[in-house]
Design a protein around this nucleic acid. Structure first.
Lengths: 181, 181, 181, 181
DNA sequence: GATGAATGAGTCTTCATTCAT
DNA sequence: CATGAATGAAGACTCATTCAT
């Protein structure tokens, strides 16, 4: 519910109905609406960043990055609601995860950007700036989850078939854009 | 306000405060909250799609597309709130612009995708699928507006300086990915 | 508008629309909503009671009363909205015309009831109590205006044709009920 | 509250105050103001029409009708607020019970009017049209409830004593008007 | 005269939350 | 565990009225 209607747009009644409970019973398990949301967020943050952690500095740069793109796209396909939940949160100015962003997330991205810079310096990768490369991967893959309605509306797709095309496109795209020389 | 908090998350009181009016005075000018939102949306839709329309079939394919990317990025920089407004709308399932998406927007994208397919067939462009290329352009550029808080948090940027880096990155990126051979 | 929706149920906007004026312009002519209502009421009170005043003590009792019934029924046919306006006012406890009721109206009815009592005493009229006879005349005639929707719904009537039947019924009815001996 | 002020003229706050509850608590028991009103109406409709159903075709015509008048007058005395509730509803055009009027109510009245016509044809009743006779009974009896304020103002009555006079009047009145020959 | 602008006071309704059982 | 009852706070919208032009 949060992922579709946002925090304010979701009522505990809706959550309770979806869960087959009464409103009061939901509040028996969670102290407040905020708490439900917070638990969702926190439980998700690590899952969300795992794929990036898996980008191995020892592997082949282009293959590592393309594999990351594919993992991220798969995540968008399998967990579109979670993706939208983050999108909502960040659109609203990330009031609840601001510290994670400027703390652990920033550290992780800085580290991976440095790794990318190393690959570029070593001539193993076309000259790309790491942070923006990561942004591009996030945006191109999450787009299929966050803007799903638009994607479906334009492609006329009613199932997940278009994800295969997206994968084909993104793989070729990143491969060409990243392969040096 | 709508761009930050979404439709449900925004109260007329907030809008009124921002505008220096009373709640009732806002409702004197607009018959309802829906009407305010609808007027915003309708006024924006054409502005939002103009850049894509400007992608000239007679021009050099790579240059045309890169120029489109740059125009779109500039739009994100200048009108980030408008970008977020659309993001919110689509995240919520596009309840108010569903018809535009499956109608005029789909037509326009289909047309441009066909144009891209022509360029690819003529060997003027690396083999990319048009719809997904357009999705990638939308997502990579709008990301700087929609996820602005995250981008700033990670880059530590407090002004628009990072847009220049984004432009550099995206230009190189698309040029490499699209240039044939 | 007042006659259909009552005082609270009618807005100045509705009155203005009906009159082809703007709300403010209506309030230019009348100082307040109360004033509009009050003027309506006062202008009507005398019209409403005139027929009763016309019941002549010198005439033939049965004919005088039957003639009064007919005049009152005609008034209901011609001015149904005015009748409903009074009905609304009295249903609500007559907050605005309470003094008229306990003052001039009561006096008039008392006088006419005395007149009827005289006729009865003289054997010119079947034994009826004057006040209640007057109440019966008011109610049976105004019923066709006040409960018009119900009357039409039951009779399936869409015009004024049923008023002729009502007149026939009421004339025979009152004649039989009032004729002495 | 509805019976005095009508639907629009009654606020949930007033109802709540009368019931010793808070406004929101009233809305906890009833989903909306409309629902409160609807429940009142529906619960009343059958009670309201029962007396008419009790007019027995096998009994003595004049006695049956006079008995109906007495039952109806008693109902007005005991349930004046309910009577006024219907009066309000019908004055406003019966928006909520239009279908009952043109459906079940019309059927019932048609049936009873036919019964009366039979009695008249058999010479057991003075020549009266059934529908209008029923209207006269409704109006003369309900008048004591609907126009109570006026009746009291004119008679100077502060209790129910005048109902006895009304009964005397109406009994004699209907008996004379209905007895054949 | 007429009207655009503005607003205080309601009025229905939603909703998160508390409390007792 | 679960739920009926209750409520403070807010929110969208209406409306009579005022004021300036």
């Amino acid at each position: 519910m949060f992922s579709t209607h946002g925090f304010r747009g979701t009522s505990i009644d809706q959550i309770a109905a979806e869960a087959g409970l009464s409103k009061q019973n939901v509040l028996y398990y969670y102290p407040s609406k905020d708490a439900i949301y917070a638990e969702l967020m926190n439980g998700l943050l690590s899952v969300w960043l795992d794929p990036l952690r898996g980008m191995d500095a020892q592997g082949d740069p282009v293959e590592e990055i393309v594999a990351y793109v594919m993992r991220k796209l798969e995540l968008a396909r399998v967990m579109p609601r979670e993706s939208r939940l983050f999108a909502h949160e960040i659109l609203q100015g990330a009031p609840r995860i601001a510290e994670t962003i400027t703390g652990p997330l920033r550290e992780l991205v800085d580290e991976k950007a440095a790794q990318i810079a190393g690959w570029v310096k070593a001539g193993q990768l076309a000259p790309v700036e790491g942070h923006h490369l990561i942004f591009s991967i996030w945006s191109t893959t999450q787009h299929y989850a966050d803007f799903e309605v638009q994607v479906r509306g334009i492609l006329g797709s009613e199932d997940d078939a278009h994800y295969a095309d997206a994968a084909t496109f993104l793989e070729g795209f990143y491969r060409r854009a990243l392969t040096p020389g």
